[in-house]
Amino acid sequence: MAEGSAGKRFTVSELRKYASLAKIKLQSSEEVRLASELGRILSYFEQIKEVDTEGVEPTYSVTGAVNRLREDRPGPCLSQDEATANAAEKERGYVKSPKAF
């Protein structure tokens, strides 16, 4: 991995790329500060690379539980009115979205 891209620094253009993937439109006034903060945080995180993890399996969940299945039975659930009560824009009981096409 190229030095400076992943590790020591987080450039403004990288910041823009990941902010855009995360759907957060940053103000240009906050970009320099954020990039430098994130760069310093990443440099600190870098120390985990010292750890020898050869042959170690990753842990994503501590319970060890695998797919817990149940029968697909209808039960009580929210009404359409309740489920859409918090939506700002509605039309005929549906949530209104911006133009998709």
Partner: peptide
């Protein structure tokens, strides 16, 4: 979405979401 999330989230949340996305 990008405008909404930029205005709705504070700095610490933005930092964590962006680094997590990375």
């Amino acid at each position: 979405f990008s405008r909404t999330r930029a205005a709705g989230f504070g700095d610490e949340v933005k930092r964590r979401i962006i680094l997590g996305t990375f």
